[in-house]
Amino acid sequence: MVNFGSLREAIKRIDIPTLIIVFFLIGLFILAAATKVSVTTLLSDSIVRIGMNGVLVLAMLPTIRAGIGPNFGLPVGIIGGLLGGLIVMQYQVAGPIGFWIAVGISIVINFVLGWIYAWLLDKVRGQEMMVETYVGYSIVAFMSIMWLVLPFTNPEMIWAIGGKGLRYTLTLQNYFDKALNNFLRFQIGKNFSFPTGLVVFFAGSCYLVWLFFKTRPGLAIDLTGQNELYAISSGVNPKKARRNAVILSTVIAGVGILVYAQSYGFLQLYQAPLFMTFPAVASILIGGASIRRATITNVVLGTILFQTLLTVSLPVLSQVTRGDITEVLRLIVSNGMILYALTRTPKEAS
């Protein structure tokens, strides 16, 4: 049953940039079909990238819904996730089980980190986005020092020569590399393989978060974000609701980076966490969210659009020009999207 009226409504509500990206994407696929690039490979790659980035995008949802905007301090949670992965490596827990242990550890760490982070953000109500960004930068720089001095000893993790400090990228080959991707993976034809575990995990995460927002604590976050005074008059403690949202976002970010790492096959330390934030923010915005409202649909749609765009544009555009143009494209698209979201006059203002 398709309700055409509501379909038209839905189309009307789609943002112009989202539409542009959709058309651009369609154009790329047509171009791909015209050139020798294999569309099935592109699709297969896209699905992997959607799955590996999706959870990080999901981390944006709670803070937006709590009314404090996208979580520009994503690195805080990522650090917790990395620590989980590092501990698993240090104790040489091999195989997929390591992934789940890492997730468990990261959740514990991020609960604490998130709590502190939330406390700070509450002190700076109204300036969250800026403070988040610079707390993110600061913690990354601080942890860069920590990566050098923390007592990790597994030779696969530390610099081969000199033996002090962790490497820039740590291969997960003997650990939880592709722990999710290879779970129930199946192949269709020569070029298309479906990473079942990864997709199921992303879908499951979305479903859990969706369920959470139907519970009372979840509703409290929603009410706080939409109208703090309404929330107060409904007996909600907005401070607590915002704190929950920040902790939730931080925890999801930690899980998200582990999902990303197992698919990528490496843990990336030092500056790397910084480069996760803006694409994640941009994704949810491309999916139609604003800095004050977001839904699971925005998360899924945005991740699909943005990641497919990146996957498809690389091989297709490299037929026309140098491949590294996609990197520039990513910069322009993601920051352009955030800029658009920040400067548009809110629809709500009537």
């Binding site: 009372r216 509703l219 409290a220 009410l223 939409q226 109208n227 005074l229 309404y230 008059s233 409904s234 007996g235 909600v236 409202r293 709500e348």
Partner: peptide, 26 residues
Amino acid sequence: SEDRRGVGLLLDESVEMNIVATAIQA
């Protein structure tokens, strides 16, 4: 509240959620 739009309502939410949200929450 006297401030219907500022306090009393979730303007972008549905009629039904506006009616029940407080009851669910409290």
